[in-house]
Design a protein around this nucleic acid. Sequence first.
DNA 1: CATAGTCACTTGCATTTAGCAAGTTGCTTT
DNA 2: AAAGCAACTTGCTAAATGCAAGTGACTATG
Lengths: 125, 125
Amino acid sequence: MWPEFRSRCPVASALDIVGDRWTLIVLRTMFAGRHRYGELADIPEKISTNILADRLERLEDFGLITKTAYQQNPPRYQYHLTEKGADLLPVLQEMAAWAARHIPDRWSSPPWFTEGKPEHFYPHG
Amino acid sequence: MWPEFRSRCPVASALDIVGDRWTLIVLRTMFAGRHRYGELADIPEKISTNILADRLERLEDFGLITKTAYQQNPPRYQYHLTEKGADLLPVLQEMAAWAARHIPDRWSSPPWFTEGKPEHFYPHG
DNA sequence: CATAGTCACTTGCATTTAGCAAGTTGCTTT
DNA sequence: AAAGCAACTTGCTAAATGCAAGTGACTATG
């Protein structure tokens, strides 16, 4: 369920879960409405497929996303944010706002992202 | 000044700067009022000194912190947040809030952190 | 019916980054 | 003269990342 935490500091603990180069990019893509492996792999940042598979497994282990089959034969899966995962939206929003203020020439965030709330992004929320 | 960005997405770009296991922990420690190398090294998460030196150099390169001498002979330095660096406070606040909500048994954040504003944490701000 | 294509991964291997311990430099203190 | 301290640096091992190719279970095409 949880990784080994470096300390009980909440910032450090959050980073033990999402503090790497790819995890938050996978979550960002899911906020953008993509739920299948192929859709999550086809992003401008060029994530390699072994990393994507690893992060999806980790995110599922930590309860930030769910993996459910949308068909059998051949088995095909879709990934969705849980409440815990969707609740990271404010972190992504603040990161995007910071980048918009301090890094030139970034893409502008759409209103569904800037004004969205976590409960809009998980089933029954 | 800037790293090579994977894309112009603001979230991905922010992660190109702070998206690793240690960078935000170094910044957290500086928000907590520590400014000297030894103080930044002496944290419960046990950062190794080569990583700390590397992250301080990166953060200075990217303009998130400044390095200034507070004495000559022997030269001793102190590190301070710039406006750009201090402006990451909302990201840390949202991370801490998320961890407090979803990970059991974390330390509770002090009011100077929870209620702080970026301009309280850089010179002349 | 055979071949080609798609999806969702998995495997192998090279490169990069992180982690740990010990060493170095230039003073200061005993 | 010897020990200590601050701020790193170096060497080496281990882990994570990146890239390309391969796999299995179908589905669609000629």
